[in-house]
Design a protein around this nucleic acid. Sequence first.
DNA 1: TTGAAAGCGCTAACAC
DNA 2: GTGTTAGCGCTTTCAA
Lengths: 344, 344
Amino acid sequence: MSIVLLAKALNLSVSTVSRALNGYDDVAADTRQRVVAMAKEMNYRPNPGARRLVSGTTRAIGVTLPMLEAGDEFIDWMYSGLLAGVSAALDGSGYYLFATSAGSRGMESEMALYRNFIEGRWADALLFVRTHTNDPRVKLAQEADIPFVTYGRTESTEPYTWIDTDNEGAFAMAVNRQLGFGHRRIALLNGPSEYYFAHLRALGYSRTLQAAGVEVDPLLIKEGQLTVQSGYNLTMQLLNHPNRPTSIVCAVDSMAFGAMAACRESGLVVGRDISIIGYSNSPISPFCDPPLTTIEHRVFENGRHVGDALLRLLNGNTQVASGYLERVTLVPRASDGPRNNVQK
Amino acid sequence: MSIVLLAKALNLSVSTVSRALNGYDDVAADTRQRVVAMAKEMNYRPNPGARRLVSGTTRAIGVTLPMLEAGDEFIDWMYSGLLAGVSAALDGSGYYLFATSAGSRGMESEMALYRNFIEGRWADALLFVRTHTNDPRVKLAQEADIPFVTYGRTESTEPYTWIDTDNEGAFAMAVNRQLGFGHRRIALLNGPSEYYFAHLRALGYSRTLQAAGVEVDPLLIKEGQLTVQSGYNLTMQLLNHPNRPTSIVCAVDSMAFGAMAACRESGLVVGRDISIIGYSNSPISPFCDPPLTTIEHRVFENGRHVGDALLRLLNGNTQVASGYLERVTLVPRASDGPRNNVQK
DNA sequence: TTGAAAGCGCTAACAC
DNA sequence: GTGTTAGCGCTTTCAA
């Protein structure tokens, strides 16, 4: 099934058919109708390769997904929601989102994939997630002059379009809640520092403590993977310390689950003897014991914004670099509480 | 950067360059070397669209990911691991795995995506995950004559290549363990029955009970989504029953987490008053309270097998339909135990 | 062993 | 308003 066959069946020229199908206005209304009807009947689909070859456009948007460092996961829970949102925004636009695994060799293999996307002209636009403080992908895309949106910011000086959640505000919120409970020794279980979000979260944490006149103790700031296991390990380290924290703020709910397990094993009752707060409001959080206080981060909505931004770029507003910072909300549950409860 | 420019720089014809690059053996060894060196130097990448146009091949493998019915997740934990395995197997083969979200309109939108993949010739091969008992995708791909592998089986009579885990064996294992603990009223929290794996798990469950001379009580078989919330809801239903189960076998760890929460809320101590066993050994399972007994299902390994099978098909062994059934192993932890402990 | 030329399916000038 | 034609970048006969 090709456009030639379609044209033949209609007794029209190929170009007329092409124009009718692509919405040009120099086609008679009834001709267009006939073409569209026949195209449907014959189940015609333009060959995207041929289209791309001549027009340089693919109708595809590429994204590579970061694997967890742990190795055997393609994508973590958060990106599930994000991509669902992007897909929802793209639905009906004619653009498709193609995701590829970045492999386990870190940024290097991710760059290789993006190079393939760009140089192989697989996609009209790109999406970068889990941005690094200094992110080579931004430069790559800018040099290749391909539209892109990042989910998360970077330190790049060149303007570009990004969507992000208010990481700094979120962790200010988390820490303020702990301060309000009377906690002073508040630990931070953060993600790898090469990610910009980790930097921003640490900033929100430190600034809020300082604003409250509480000294920032570097021993209370731990950095690890965004996994349950890592949350467990780091918390064990914290608890073995002589002057241990009475509250733990976690970069992600997974880490908080690990932290809860470590506390439990150490004989501490979470929510009474020690406070734990997560981030992301994962589906399990309401159901763990005790239910996890966390910060709701509307990933699906974020995804919609990402999708909308991509469509805007693709529709020609290429010049307009813009940023959008999504708000977060606190979801109070039972895993944290007043310091006076703490029996030290 | 096109092959024409490359040829010009080398003072060779386009066709010679093409043959040199594509490994034809009618090219002089030193010519090939020169070509390869220059291609590297000039950073030449063949345009996949053009290549596809003439050769009909794309070097891409397409997969659409099922969203959780819950709506806002792109892909659940299990498929993360699976796709990581597929990517690992494909690494270095020159093939790329492209994943698309199936949207939230169920099989219908999934079919639309696959049609796009096939009719738009986006991919050389397809991967179908979460197979249905009667799966229209299999017929679609067979009619379109495009190679495909399914992860999970279907009831199709035509032979095709599939990879699956031993669902029936896994649930026989789970039930046998519960029987060994002295349980007789063993509930099953299953996934949606349109999925073939749910059918197979129910089969493993029923047959094992029957073999042990235990009557299968339809009231103990519940069907729901593969989510924490659903596990919670269904368990609440079970517990409100007059003759409630003393053991609950879950189709997936997520459901087991919900089940544990429901039991806790109902004043039952999991592992003592009631037994719970999950399936999939998710990263949280060792860290919940009590740690969840579950069945390890090596998704990453499964993914490797899927990738290998795809490569085999792509390398011409198109005729050979084959199946591979992956073994599972039991991971005993503390969430289940002897019936005599049960205070009814 | 290499080159010339046709053509994959489509779009976009340009002519009518 | 419609048709003719060139050409996107590549592979693959076929001839030299």
